[in-house]
């Protein structure tokens, strides 16, 4: 159980770059190689799932099957926005401030 094959799955630098871009992370060339190797190892390990026949199996999203509860449509006033604004790296009055968004 504790031995596992390091499979052939190997991510390219291009793929790693693409994932990083989607996740808004910036990787150096050295990072690319490191992540490519490490993620490939995990993905190879994960490949063992393919041995499993799941043709007629329902997916489980949650451990229990109850419907989502509802909330009544009633306003609950909240007045402590200032506590949140105080955590902002940059603010102006009641606004969160960011570098110009190019629309």
């Amino acid at each position: 159980m504790f031995s596992f094959s390091r499979g052939k799955m190997k991510l390219t630098h291009e793929e790693v770059k693409k994932i990083a871009r989607l996740a808004r992370l910036q990787l150096t060339e050295a990072d690319l190689e490191k992540y490519a190797t490490q993620l490939s190892a995990v993905l190879s390990y994960i490949e063992r799932l393919n041995q499993l026949d799941t043709a007629n199996i329902e997916p489980t999203a949650h451990a229990f099957l109850v419907p989502t509860p509802f909330r009544e449509d009633k306003v609950k006033p909240y007045t402590e926005q200032e506590l949140s604004l105080q955590n902002a790296p940059d603010r102006e009055g009641p606004f969160f401030k960011v570098p110009k968004v190019i629309a």
Partner: peptide
Amino acid sequence: RPNENTCPVCLGLPGVLPVLNKKV
């Protein structure tokens, strides 16, 4: 006023969770 109609949930603060409005 800007950000007056906000709370931890709609500000997306760490740790918050959504609860569905039935009327919606």
